[in-house]
Structure formats: C-alpha cells, structure tokens
Amino acid sequence: MADMVDFLSTSLRVTTPILLSALGALIASSAGATNIALEGIMLFSAFVGAVVSGLTHSLILSLLSAVSSGLIMTGILAFFSLKLKANIIMAAIALNIFSSGGTIFFLNVITGEKGSSASIESLVFPTLEIPLINKIPGIGEILSGHNILTYFALFSVIAVSFMLKRTPLGTKIRAVGENKEAAESVGISVRKVKTVALLLSGFYASLGGVYLSMGYVSWFSRNMTSGRGWIALAAQALGGKSAYGVAISSGVFGMSESASYSLKLLNIPGELTQAFPFIITVLMLIIVSFKKERRFIGNS
C-alpha cells in the first residue's frame, strides 16, 4: 500500500514537466501551428532558470528569465515560419539543435563546466503542503507536498480548457486551427492568432523545463530533458483536442516513467518503459488512422 502511494506520488511529480509542455503543444496545435520545438525550449529554459537563480539568487528573476527565453525562442519560431515563410517543422528542428549545443556552450562560458551547473548554487521552487488534505492518509501523501509548479500544472489543465472553450481568444484559436478561411471571413488575423498560440505554447514549455532544473533538483545537466519534449508531443497527439484528454495521457506517461523505477526491481528492462510512450503513440496513430480510413471508404 505504501508502495502504491509512493508510486502515485512519484507519478504526479514526474508527470508535471510532461503535462506543462503537452498543454503548450495543445494550444499551438489547436491553432493549426505545430510546435515540435518543445524539447529545445524546455532544455534551454531549464538551463536559463538554473543559471540565473545561481547568479542572482532570486526565484522571481530566474523564473522570469527562463520564461522569457522560452518566449523568445517561440517568437523566433513564429517569426520565421509565419513571416519569412520557413517550414515550421524545420525551424523547430533548428531550435532543438540550437538548444542541445547552445546550452552546453553557454554553460561553459558562464561556469566553465560542460556537464552540469552544480558548481553554482541554484535555487529550487518551493513545495506546498495543502492544509487538511495532507492529513488524509494515503491521498494526503499523494496530493500534498508537491512543488508549486505541479499545482500550477494541474490548475492549468482547467485554465487551458476554459480558455479554449470560453474565451474569445480560445474561440479564435480553434477557428483558425480548423478553418482559416472562416476566421479570415470575420476579420480575424490568422497570423496574429497563431503567433499568440505559439507564444503560449512556449510559455508552458519553458515552465516544463524550469521544473526539471528547479523543481526537484537544483541544477542543470546536459540533455536533462531526455526526450520529455517528444513525450509531451506524444501526449498531446494522444489526448486529442481536449486539455483533460491531454492531462490523462500525460498522466499515463508519467506513470510509466514512475513505473520504470519500480519495475527495474521486477527485471523489466528500463528501455522498454522508456520506449513505452512512443510505442503507445504509434499504436494509437495506427488505430485512429485505421478508423478514419474505414469511415472514408464507407462514405464514398
């Protein structure tokens, strides 16, 4: 029983960065702008957050600079793809490559190290105990005591869902994503809406990255995202158009990562659990495409 509690608590912790980035991916894809640079944005924000917090010892400053770096990167993505007509996939790949090398380069410039930023003392975001709930046995341990970013992520699920369904911005995003001409016919600027959607996705991705280097550990290490940006994409692909769906698939992937720690004891190879999210996504893609094909052939 204690194992189960442990497992779920760890799962929630591990789901956080995936969920944050996946929500970002959801917003972008709802507007019809695919952002596959999540991995790169997460990595760079993780780096900026850890380093700035080490240099300034200010949580606010490090949060702001990390988020700004994420917004700047997505701004570049939006500018190149929307204004300069670059292919949005290629531009995102460029950002990912930039991040993987750039973080190490700048890490070296600032700290002289190339492996991690452990030499400078970085801060960590505080954890939160929820009064009353933390007294409940079992559930209390699962839900309380998490990092505030985790609670922000959970809150964001509701917030993003609400934004998409009940605010004018969300309606515009969905309209642009589904039928550009319909949006243009009522005077909506497709480019502006896509840019805003991309920036929001960058915002969430940078939070996901910041969590990695300042939520649980207090340092940045090279390639610390380890593919989580891609898992977030997979979670969004599985979760479809709803924030709650995305939350569920992120949770599933979080649980599988958490399981890999305990399953090692059962001799299930870690590589399989690591590959699990990707295998599931491909299988789901096959199933969904199969269903679509059937319907299409049925109609014609």
Binding site: A91, A94, L95, I97, F98, S100, G101, G102, F105
Partner: peptide, 9 residues
Amino acid sequence: AILQAIIIL
C-alpha cells in the same frame, strides 16, 4: 550547434 541552427533557419 548554434551555427547549424542559424543555417537551417
């Protein structure tokens, strides 16, 4: 990596 990113973009 930074040079590569600039080239791609």
